[in-house]
């Protein structure tokens, strides 16, 4: 097997300032290979978006500090200087955000926004960059790309904006694309098209894709690998088929049950009691224990570590495959 494109080891993030400073990510380990789709699943506060932004150090600053190691294409991302970091963003790693209506500049045409990345990184002149922007819009399935390149974001539908966002991400041929809830803001009949587009791009360009989502249906449709995050940690990592066949972490199991949305004999939906922890509510015990049907005193006293188990990893004292 070839060396991974991205290799994350012990990634820890501290976010916020003063008394509000929290550990939003704890010792996160995972690899991403070219041509592979890795889904990071979790609810709000799980740290999934923090992890995504940390890979490009987007949330770094007085309000955010990282430790651990992020290796991308041989580079040590966390120690890059600002110039090298800028070059990594866009050229090495690109990101597609959830709400394209907000993530695109309202005062610039789509074509110019895509072209700017090439002007900045590849020192292309605007003419050539705009021409290539139109090609990219064609590649992401935008109808009439030449005309649409001259439109402003508000003049497009939600699906078109997300296609434009993806074209923007592809502008400088990155090796890794991070898509943060790319279809959550879209209508269901459009979601499938955008997901199919992402899948075909990954295959055609032999890129790595990290898909951040809360939607297990999206994971099932697209992912090769699944990472489940809860309270800033990975609690289960598994190949997608095995994950859905037999989840090992009780949280994974509860999520899959909840996602199938069916009434039980009593006429109620399956639920997970309690609520997701706030970002940074990570103690020295299993964060899921208060909501977990299998929790024991051990779970409330100690933090289960993420241990390899066959083809997967899991952090649980009483996994579901233990009868």
């Amino acid at each position: 097997m070839s060396a991974p494109l991205l290799s994350v080891r012990g990634l820890t993030a501290e976010l916020g300032s003063g008394a509000q400073r929290v550990t939003a990510l704890r010792a996160v380990d995972f690899d991403v290979r070219r041509g592979e789709i890795t889904a990071i699943v979790g609810e709000s506060g799980s740290g999934k978006s923090t992890a995504a932004m940390a890979l490009a150090r987007l949330n770094e600053g007085p309000q955010g500090a990282f430790s651990g190691e992020v290796r991308f294409d041989g580079m040590d991302v966390l120690s890059l200087n600002s110039r090298a970091l800028r070059s990594l963003r866009g050229q090495g790693i690109a990101m597609v955000f959830q709400d394209a209506a907000a993530a695109l500049n309202p005062c610039e045409t789509i074509g110019d926004q895509i072209a700017e990345a090439m002007v900045v990184h590849k020192a292309r002149d605007w003419r050539a960059a705009r021409a290539h922007a139109i090609e990219l819009l064609g590649e992401v399935g935008m109808p009439e790309p030449a005309r649409r390149a001259g439109l402003y974001p508000h003049e497009m539908s939600g699906g078109q904006r997300q296609r434009a966002m993806i074209a923007l991400g592809l502008a400088c041929d990155p090796a890794l694309l991070i898509a943060d809830e790319p279809t959550t803001a879209l209508d269901v009949t459009v979601q499938g098209q955008i997901l199919a587009l992402l899948k075909s791009i990954v295959a055609r360009r032999d890129m790595g894709l990290i898909l951040i989502t809360h939607d297990l249906g999206v994971v099932a449709a697209l992912a090769d690998q699944v990472l489940v995050m809860y309270a800033g940690r990975i609690v289960e990592a598994a190949p997608v088929a095995e994950f859905f066949d037999a989840p090992h972490h009780p949280y994974s199991g509860d999520m899959i049950t909840a996602a199938s949305v069916a009434l039980d004999a009593g006429g109620r939906l399956a639920t997970i009691p309690g609520r997701p922890p706030h970002s940074g509510d990570v103690g020295e015990s299993c964060a899921y224990a208060p909501r977990c049907a299998r929790a024991s005193n051990q779970c409330r006293a100690a933090l289960p570590s993420l241990e390899p188990h066959g083809t997967r990893r899991r952090a649980c004292f009483h996994p579901l495959d233990d009868a």
Binding site: Q193, L195, A220
Partner: peptide
Amino acid sequence: PPPSVAAARATLEAAA
């Protein structure tokens, strides 16, 4: 896409 791999992949095929 339902939370099951085979069915979700079929949904994606159709959407494409």
